[in-house]
């Protein structure tokens, strides 16, 4: 299990190769890559800056991965989140989950991403034609995270 917060871009193929190296028990690898769009709330976005809470970020994402491990058969998981200034087309976040079977890999990957969006202390500030603005938290993200709790009831 690894959580990395970094300014540098990441190489998805290289990260997956490292995560599955020499482990023939892995039968499924699910990954999610979040990328920067050039449009948000109807305005064109030239670039965005991501800040985070060092220490709490790593701790909260590790807790989310531990929760996923408690619900699904997960062999390993990797989360990389970038910070600093990013432009449209740039990769922001990577979640990779390895498992014996696809069902567990898909579910755990989606669960980690949904909770990362609502629990991990990252904040985005967008640069648009109308000036700079902090991105508001979306109710849709809260709903996506809550749906896992309903499934668990």
């Amino acid at each position: 299990m690894a959580v990395r917060v970094q300014a540098e871009d990441f190489d998805v193929s290289a990260e997956i190769a490292t995560l599955r190296k020499d482990n023939p028990r892995i039968g499924a690898i699910a990954s999610f890559i979040g990328v920067v769009r050039d449009l948000n709330e109807g305005d064109s976005v030239a670039e965005m800056t991501l800040e985070h809470y060092p220490g709490m970020t790593e701790k909260s994402v590790e807790e989310i991965i531990m929760q996923a491990r408690g619900s699904w058969q997960v062999m390993d998981a990797l989360v990389i989140h970038r910070i600093g200034t990013l432009k449209p087309l740039d990769q922001i976040v990577l979640v990779v989950v390895t498992s014996a079977h696809r069902g567990d890999a898909f579910a755990a990957c989606e669960f980690i991403m949904d909770f990362l969006k609502t629990r991990a202390p990252f904040w985005k500030k967008e640069q648009t034609g109308k000036g700079a603005r902090w991105v508001d938290a979306r109710a849709a993200d809260d709903a996506a995270a809550e749906r896992w709790q309903k499934q668990g009831e």
Partner: peptide, 29 residues
Amino acid sequence: AAVNQSIASGDTPIKDGDEVAFFPPVTGG
């Protein structure tokens, strides 16, 4: 708000030496 890097609520106890953070709802990912 977070106390010692865990999400906290109004009734969370605070003691000397704690790290207390205030921030907007998160928007990562």
